[in-house]
Amino acid sequence: MSLTEARPKESLRGASRKSAARHHGPGPRQGTRRIPWLYLAPAMIVLLIMTIAPAIYIFYTSFRNASILGGAGRFVGFTNYETALTDPATQQSFLATLLFVAGVVILEMILGLALAIPLAQQTWSNKLASALMLLPFAVTPAVAAMVFKQLLNPNYGWFSYYMNQLGFPPNLDLLGNPAGAWAVLIVLDMWQWTPFVALILMAGLQSQPLEPREAAMVDGANKWQIFRNITLPGMVPFIAIALVLRTIQAFKTFDSFKIVTNGGPGNSTEIINLGIHRIGLQSFNIGLACASAVLLLVVLLLLVPAMQRVIGRRADPEEQ
């Protein structure tokens, strides 16, 4: 399996740089060619052990009926994949994961933009605002999840008490039904991550040049036209960065689901990360868990080209 995505070469610039390197680079000493690999080796070894090696292991194990207790098990062909793909609970896990990722990413992008626009004005109060903005984002996710759970406690929580004051029935238990539990998990994710999107988009808005907007204003364009036709197109790279990073991060969500609902009520909020954890590390059906993990990895591999394009090219100092 290859995680590598070859970068399209920028022929002219790349070529001239290469020849430049030949002239100005450090002189051709003995073993010079090995030196970069030597410096790179420790980091590469750790990365390979923690990414490629596990990927190979889960791929291998996904074809076996392995359990922690029964050792490596025997070869069972595609049985685990069949189970993973036909089992209604696993199907629901995958669907729930995709819907959750799509839902929170879209909501966070829209709200992030809505927050970034007022935040981008450089005023004294916005310095305070951007500091406050960062607070939820820094809170340990496991702590945030636990605090949300207490706030929503039907007997003692602030939420049920103050909702009751507003006329809702007493002892409101949001986490007791699937719709309420989903709403809580989505709001928790938005609370934690919308600020991250907002701060990326704010940086984007602040980097837009002033002149085109002034020119459009002189020409009589209204605010919406200026935003729609000048600001928004300039914002595309920043929107893309936020979109790609948030999508990848949302696929990794685990803590909040584990702590707030642990997949419940029933298995209504069991996203695939929770499913893999339960099947593999609680039921010890490693083979089946690995089959699901392979499927998840395939989905995430599809995001690699987007990440290379959007972040790789922009963050790469040699491309600027």
């Binding site: 995680l3 590598t4 995505e5 990365l47 923690m50 990414t51 596990p54 990927a55 292991y57 889960i58 990848i248 696929f251 990794k252 685990f254 990360n273 893999i276 954890h277 593999g280 590390l281 490693i286 868990a289 690995c290 993990a293 998840l296 990895l297 995430l300 591999l301 995001l303 690699v304 990440m307 290379q308």
Partner: peptide, 12 residues
Amino acid sequence: STYMFPPIVAVI
């Protein structure tokens, strides 16, 4: 690209 590698896949 290894950033996208989900920790849940490595944990088992």
